[in-house]
C-alpha cells in the first residue's frame, strides 16, 4: 500500500513565453506509515509535487499510483482520492469561510456525501484531534489566532478521515511554541492513528525531528532520497543547493574537530545530548 510516482513531469503555462518546467522526471514512493519530509529551496517544486498527490494538478506526463490504481484512469474516483489523501495548504485563510469553526470543519466530510450524523462526529473528533479548545468550536474562524486557524484548517482535512495527510509548510509564520505544538500534534496523528504524513518544510530541524524518510527537491528533480541520517551526513551537498543540515549536526562536527569523540550523524537534539554525555563520560 503506497503512493508511487512514476516519471512525473509538469510544465506551467505550456506554450507561452513564461513556460516553466516545475517537475522534471520525478519518481518516488511514499509507503504507508511513512513520515516523509519533503525539503527544498523556494521554487524547487515541492508545492507543485504535493498538489499532484491528490490530483489537483495533472502531470504533463507520467503516472501516479495510489494503492496500485492509476489515478489518471478515466473512471478513477478523484473525489474519493481527495478524501483519502488530505492536502492542507500553507495559508489557512485560503480555505476558512463558514460562520463558525465547526461548520467549516463539516465542509469536507459533507462534500464526501457522509450522513449528517457522521459529518458531525467526524468534525468533532477532528477538532479534538487537533487539540482545539472546546470553547472555540462555535466562534468565527476569522477571529482565531494564526496557530488556531492552522489547527482548524488541518481539522477541516482530517474530518474527511484521510489515510495520507499532506501538509504544505504547516508552520510558516508561527512562533516556536506554536510550531512545536502543531508538529507534535501531527506526530501524534502519525503514531497513534497510523496516518501516513507528508511534511513539506523549509526547516531542517523540523524535518530532522519528525520525519523518518526525507526527499530533497532541487530544480524540479528529486535530488536525494533517504533516511535523515543519510541525507544530513551530506552537509556539503546540501549547502551547494542552498540548504543545510540541522544546526545541531554542525555543532557535533565542531565538537569532533576539537577532539571530542562524538557522533556526527546526530540530527536531533536528544541524539546529540546522548552522544555528548557518552563522550564526556568516556573521556
Amino acid at each position: 500500500m503506497s503512493i508511487i510516482l512514476d516519471h512525473i513531469n509538469y510544465v506551467y503555462s505550456k506554450g507561452t513565453s513564461d513556460e516553466i518546467k516545475a517537475l522534471d522526471d520525478v519518481s518516488m514512493e511514499i509507503r504507508t506509515g511513512d513520515f516523509l519530509g519533503l525539503i527544498g529551496h523556494t521554487g524547487s517544486g515541492k508545492s507543485t509535487l504535493v498538489q499532484h498527490l491528490d490530483g489537483l494538478l495533472k502531470a504533463t506526463s507520467g503516472h501516479i499510483y495510489y494503492n496500485g490504481e492509476d489515478i489518471y484512469d478515466d473512471d478513477y474516483d478523484m473525489k474519493g482520492l481527495r478524501g483519502k489523501v488530505g492536502l492542507v495548504f500553507q495559508y489557512p485563510e485560503h480555505q476558512l469561510f463558514e460562520e463558525d469553526v465547526f461548520k467549516d470543519v463539516c465542509f469536507g466530510p459533507r462534500n464526501l456525501g457522509m450522513s449528517e450524523k457522521d459529518i458531525e462526529l467526524a468534525a468533532y473528533s477532528a477538532l479534538k484531534a487537533v487539540k482545539l479548545p472546546d470553547e472555540l468550536f462555535y466562534v468565527s474562524p476569522f477571529h482565531l489566532s494564526g496557530g488556531q486557524k492552522r489547527r482548524v484548517a488541518i481539522a477541516g482535512v482530517l474530518a474527511m478521515k484521510p489515510e495520507v495527510l499532506v501538509l504544505d509548510e504547516p508552520t510558516a509564520g508561527l512562533d516556536p511554541e506554536g510550531r512545536d505544538e502543531i508538529l507534535d500534534m501531527v506526530k501524534g496523528l502519525h503514531d497513534e492513528d497510523n496516518i501516513t504524513v507528508v511534511l513539506v518544510s523549509h526547516s531542517m530541524e523540523d524535518v530532522a525531528n519528525y520525519a523518518d524518510h526525507i526527499v530533497v527537491m532541487e530544480k524540479g528533480r528529486v535530488h536525494m532520497d533517504g533516511t535523515p541520517k543519510e541525507i544530513f551526513s551530506q552537509t556539503e551537498e546540501l549547502e551547494r543547493i542552498g540548504l543545510a543540515a540541522p544546526r545541531v549536526t554542525y555543532m557535533m562536527y565542531e565538537l569532533k574537530r576539537r577532539g571530542f569523540d562524538v557522533d556526527t550523524t546526530a540530527t536531533t537534539i536528544s541524539e546529540a545530548v546522548n552522544s555528548v554525555i557518552g563522550a564526556v563520560w568516556n573521556a
Binding site: L56, R82, G83, H94, L112, V157, M160
Partner: peptide
C-alpha cells in the same frame, strides 16, 4: 485548490 482538496 484548497477547497477542492476538501472535496468541493
Amino acid at each position: 485548490k484548497a477547497q477542492q482538496a476538501r472535496g468541493a
